[in-house]
Amino acid sequence: MDVPQLLEAAALLVPEDVADEGDVTVSDVWECLVRDEWEVAIGLLEECGGERALSLEFWEALAAAAEQLRLERSAAWCRWRCYEARCGVIRADLTLRPVGEARRRTPFSGAGVLRPMWEIGNRTPAGEPTLHVAALWAEFVPFVEPGGRATVRLAPLDRSGWQNLRPGQVITMHEDMTVAGTAVVLDVRCPVAG
């Protein structure tokens, strides 16, 4: 499919009632499509997706359109949301340790590149904490600085150890054996059905 077809397919997958007063609506998207404003339409559809649980098909169509338009960050974000539609959502409020208290001395990209280890409360048979790897996407910021704070989304490489995670739980991030930061779990949601 070409970009307009992909965007039309994505727009058709957004329920009409997703917008509240003052929010972006599907009608806004259709207006952009009529004017061939594809990049704007992608941005509006991403907003329609917001925190709503939209289908895998929606995010796949949007990712394919962004890839065809070479919108790398949008494509990466939509692929991330494809993962969340398949596997579920984990969001947390992360605070990194400042320079001098952890290994990190420079900011890292918030676009899902970093794959730190997380201590999430699981233990080995000997009682030692186990670490689990999860990629990290920082919401609304391109980079996270040492000592900084951001709302992050986690994509575990193996979801099997993460079933007992609950909102309010404190988890720790590691880039080596020292603690790189702490996070309070905000939200844990199951995959989108269908």
Rank of each mutant, 00 (worst) to 15 (best):
A10G: 09
R52M: 05
E145T: 05
A9I: 03
P129D: 05
P191L: 09
A111C: 06
L62I: 10
R73D: 12
C32P: 00
N122R: 13
P15E: 03
P4M: 12
V179R: 10
D2M: 11
A92N: 03
D20Y: 07
V179N: 03
L54Y: 03
E119D: 13
P116A: 09
V141A: 13
C78P: 03
C82E: 14
I90N: 02
W30Q: 08
D93P: 09
V170S: 09
A53T: 02
L114V: 14
A61G: 11
A11V: 07
R81D: 01
S55D: 01
V188L: 07
T106E: 13
R159T: 11
F58D: 00
T25Y: 01
D2G: 05
P98A: 04
D17E: 14
E128W: 04
L45D: 03
W137H: 13
G50H: 02
D17Y: 07
W30G: 00
M173N: 03
E37G: 09
P191E: 08
P116D: 04
C82H: 01
E37N: 12
V179Q: 09
A65F: 11
R81Y: 02
V3N: 00
L12M: 13
L33M: 08
V34N: 12
V144T: 03
V3F: 05
A180N: 12
S55E: 01
T124Y: 02
L96I: 08
P191H: 02
L33C: 04
A75R: 01
F108A: 03
A11K: 04
P142N: 15
D176R: 15
A19I: 08
R86F: 04
A11E: 02
W80T: 10
L94V: 11
A76N: 07
P191M: 02
N122A: 07
A65I: 07
I120V: 15
A138P: 01
D2I: 11
Y83N: 10
G110D: 10
C78H: 04
P191T: 10
V133Q: 15
R97L: 15
R97C: 11
R52P: 02
L54I: 03
E101D: 12
T178D: 15
G148S: 02
Q68D: 11
I120M: 12
P142C: 00
F143M: 14
M177H: 15
P107V: 06
R105D: 06
W38P: 02
C48H: 09
W59N: 00
Q163W: 06
V133C: 13
L13D: 05
R91E: 15
E175N: 12
D187H: 07
I90R: 04
L7I: 07
V14C: 10
V144Q: 03
E16S: 11
G112W: 11
V152M: 06
P98V: 06
E101I: 06
G147E: 12
A19R: 05
D2A: 06
L186Q: 11
P167Q: 10
A66P: 05
D2K: 05
A75Y: 04
L71E: 13
A53G: 11
A19E: 09
I42G: 00
A66E: 06
V179I: 15
E8D: 13
P156F: 08
P146L: 05
R166I: 02
G161K: 04
V18Y: 11
P146C: 08
D36C: 10
E175T: 15
A66D: 02
